[in-house]
Simulated assay, not measured.
Amino acid sequence: MRADIVMLHGGSHSQLATLDDPALAPYRIRPLHIRTADCEDLRDADVVVVSDRLRPDLLARWHEPILDRLERGATVLVFGENSVGEWIPGITEQRRPTVFWWWRTGEDHRLRLRNPTHPAREFLTDRALIWHYHGVLSLPSGAVSLVDLETPEGGQDGSVLLVDEARGGRLLVTTMDPVYHHGSGFMPGATQLLYSTLYWATR
């Protein structure tokens, strides 16, 4: 049976370009504009994708419906810069400077892969998980980090991508912003992360 996938978006160029990507057509994603769509449109969704960089004031009315779908067994993907620390219980978020071009400058990106045997890692290549970030997340009880950020001194700063399967459904949260970069046409790792998380979410 085909999964019912919805994507919350705000109509930005990158979000519309992502929704128009022919490679995603087989998923038959239903786009929901956060300003004009009805929260009832989430009722039967198997997968909820929260695009990165949505306006917090417009996203606010969707918080409860998204968490309700999660509790009822849906898979929820929340991409970067969506103030998750303010509305997903158990998660705190702290911003961090973005290291954009570490592969050119030779700077240490300080991203470290974790939990290589976690089932989600079968779908996520190293390139999909290591490109950049906009902050760090605390781990709620029962969650697993797949990517951590180290401090410059070598300590653990926080998670950049976590998976939480203790809320009824499956929750993936990351401070990376794959929809923006995929739709904008730069950072190949962003495209891999977007494609891979959608594939994981529908399995």
Rank of each mutant, 00 (worst) to 15 (best):
L67V: 01
D20F: 01
P152Q: 01
Y27V: 02
L124F: 14
D164P: 03
G168Q: 02
E81R: 15
T92A: 12
M187V: 14
G10P: 05
V6K: 04
V179H: 01
T75F: 03
R112A: 13
T151G: 03
V136Q: 08
P65H: 11
G90K: 00
A17H: 10
V6T: 06
W131I: 10
D148R: 06
R30C: 12
L124A: 09
H182I: 00
L146W: 11
R127G: 13
L193R: 04
R43M: 09
T191P: 06
G10Y: 01
G142P: 03
W102K: 08
R112T: 12
P22N: 07
H118M: 08
G189D: 09
G155R: 04
D68A: 14
R121H: 05
A60I: 02
E86N: 13
E71T: 15
L24P: 13
V76D: 00
A45I: 08
D4G: 06
T151M: 10
I91A: 06
V78K: 05
N115L: 10
E71Y: 00
V50N: 06
R55W: 05
R104S: 13
R61Y: 00
T197L: 14
Q156E: 12
W200G: 01
H182F: 06
G185I: 11
R104E: 15
L42K: 07
F79K: 07
R95I: 00
E86Y: 02
A143Q: 00
V49N: 01
A17Q: 09
G73H: 11
S138I: 10
H181Q: 11
H63I: 14
I34E: 02
F186Q: 02
H109A: 11
V84A: 02
H9C: 08
P89M: 02
T75W: 00
R121F: 02
H13P: 04
P152F: 11
R104M: 15
I29V: 14
G85T: 07
P56S: 08
H182L: 11
R104I: 13
H9S: 11
I29Q: 08
L193H: 12
G158R: 01
T151K: 04
D20K: 13
D177L: 09
L42I: 04
L42S: 09
L59A: 08
T92L: 12
R61V: 06
D57Y: 05
S159E: 05
V136M: 04
G10L: 04
T197Y: 08
W200A: 12
A45Y: 08
I130S: 02
P31E: 09
H182S: 13
S141I: 04
L161N: 03
V163N: 00
P188G: 15
L111S: 15
T202C: 13
T18Q: 09
G73A: 07
V48P: 03
S138H: 02
H182G: 03
P65D: 06
